[in-house]
Amino acid sequence: MIEVHEIVKKYGENNIVLNIEQLYIPKGQCFGLVGNNGAGKTTLFSLLLDLIQPTTGRIVSNNIQVNLSEEWKPFTSAYIDESFLIGYLTPEEYFYFIGELRGWKQNEVDEFIGGFQDFFNGEILGRKKYIRDLSKGNAKKTGIIAALIGNPQIIILDEPFANLDPTTQFRLKFILRKLLENKETTVLISSHDLQHIVEVSERIVVLDRGCIVKDIQKSEETMQELESFFKDKISLT
């Protein structure tokens, strides 16, 4: 589904923030990305969404090279940060807007978001508030659910668990698992919370200073392996 070929992202001459030789993400996979601050997680996601330009290399999504054609947009959606929200809309209006862009009618959107009443916990819908006045957690909930509208085949979520309350984190995991059941949707998430990401993902990739240092299929030992990796970084420094 997604192929990354020899991607390098440099700022200036020597500052390489991302350097990935090969990465292939098959359809229907839940792909988890971990790494410390500055490891290049958001850079990789931004490259996938053609928000920044690679210095060299190419990213191909569903046979479309993302920086040459815009045809990947109809089947891709993402929530990276608050800049994906429109502050002066109410959550409902925002959902309708995204729905319209993806060819959904209002009643289809209503029906879809109606299924997330639990997740919203009564704090999003029908509150007559603009998104800019929502708390950080509630804004994030809005953004995540909006990214699911319109049956996208690829969903990219940058740190979806951060800023959510514990109950909502569990609900989000449930939602993601359900989404992955049909093996049609490819989900890419990043997180600093090893527990959550290991639980949800089938495959974990560890980035360190722009390079892939681990690429593991989830197993019983994954959690331990990751923990020891990040712990060892303390003794190294």
Partner: peptide, 13 residues
């Protein structure tokens, strides 16, 4: 400008 990344990655020409 506040939500330009959204517009650039959504299904918009």
């Amino acid at each position: 400008s506040a939500y330009y990344p959204l517009l650039m990655s959504q299904n918009i020409q």
